[in-house]
Simulated scan of single mutants.
Amino acid sequence: MRVAIVLGGSSGIGQATAVELARRGTGVIVTYNGNPAGVQQTVALVEKEGGTAVALRLDIGRTEGFAAFRDQVVVTLRETWQRDTFDYLVNNAGFGGSAMFADTTEELFDRFLRVLLKGPYFLTQRLLPLLADGGAIVNVSSSSALPTGHVDVGYSAYGTMKGGLNTLTRFLAKELAPRRIRVNAVSPGPTRTRLADADGVVGFEAYPEVIPMLAEKTALGRLGEPDDVGAAIASLLSNESRWITAQNVEVSGGFDL
């Protein structure tokens, strides 16, 4: 059985990805930080699909915890799947939020940096010896960081980190190619998730009035759902995408087309 690690698996895109992978026969390690109830729901949904999931706590913004997390992964792989390696890594953990450029503090900038770029960079590095040859990585970016993406005011810090993640995707694809490890990114457009902002406010739950406006600007006429993105991630990880690497796939339904 193939095994995936899905970061940020307690809700939204991470949860949908874990469930979709389970449907395809893949075991899943899902991480969570501040939402233990959510990750237990993810485990239950995976088991409902006949799959196996194990939840591990991880704060992606604290690199000092990565060595202990790696040790937990080693134990989990051996005890649950009798393996020493895993096959897929989904760098999805993060948080949203905005601040005008003039109002962006160093504290907020550094938090975006730790969670959205530094964390994925060094956690991937830490886990790389456990990633099987022929495996795959998907980094979850944002359509706002694409050269053709919609640019809205207030997202300079967030977009900068996601842009860095896009660059990392290409360089990793080159460096890991000798091991036949493919590295791609997905860039979701507006998606109905529980992604909290820097103040802990949950996006579409707090501002439901923006949903019709976003649907109006989307070519396919609705807001994106986590399942839409989870399916794309699972497809990029799978053998059906075996000849795809170093790509960034926009998953937005034609937002702002």
Rank of each mutant, 00 (worst) to 15 (best):
M1Y: 00
M1A: 10
V3N: 00
A4E: 06
A4M: 07
V6E: 04
L7R: 00
G8W: 01
V19D: 05
E20I: 02
L21T: 04
A22D: 04
R24H: 13
G25M: 05
T26F: 00
G27Q: 01
V28K: 02
I29C: 01
V30G: 11
V30M: 10
T31S: 14
Y32R: 07
N33F: 15
G34V: 09
A37P: 00
G38C: 12
V39T: 14
V39A: 11
V39Q: 10
V39F: 10
Q40C: 04
Q40R: 15
Q41T: 15
T42Y: 08
L45R: 13
V46D: 02
V46R: 02
E47I: 03
E49W: 04
E49G: 05
G51L: 07
A53R: 03
A53L: 10
A55N: 07
L56D: 04
G61K: 07
G61S: 15
G61M: 08
A67I: 09
D71W: 03
D71K: 13
D71C: 01
Q72D: 14
V73R: 02
V73L: 06
V73C: 02
V75R: 13
T80K: 13
W81P: 00
Q82N: 14
R83P: 00
T85Y: 09
D87E: 13
Y88L: 12
Y88V: 07
L89F: 11
V90S: 02
N91V: 08
N91C: 11
N92I: 03
A93C: 11
S98P: 00
F101Q: 08
E106F: 03
E106R: 04
E107N: 06
L113W: 14
L113N: 10
L116C: 06
L116P: 00
L117Q: 06
K118G: 00
T124E: 04
L131W: 03
A132N: 13
D133K: 15
G135E: 11
I137S: 09
V140G: 02
S144K: 02
S144A: 15
A145Q: 08
P147G: 09
T148M: 11
H150E: 11
V153R: 11
V153L: 12
Y155Q: 07
Y155D: 01
A157W: 00
Y158G: 01
M161G: 01
G164R: 07
G164E: 07
G164P: 09
L165P: 07
F171A: 13
F171H: 13
A173L: 05
K174A: 12
E175P: 09
L176E: 09
P178H: 14
R179Q: 15
V183S: 09
V186E: 02
T191S: 05
T193R: 04
D197T: 08
A198R: 04
V202M: 11
F204I: 10
V210Y: 05
V210T: 14
I211V: 15
M213R: 15
E216L: 12
K217T: 06
A219M: 12
G221I: 11
G221C: 12
R222N: 12
G224K: 04
P226C: 10
P226I: 08
P226N: 10
D228R: 03
A231T: 15
L237D: 05
L237P: 07
L237H: 09
S238G: 15
E240C: 09
R242H: 13
I244H: 08
I244R: 05
T245G: 06
T245Y: 03
Q247H: 14
N248C: 13
V249I: 15
E250A: 14
V251Q: 02
V251M: 03
G253T: 06
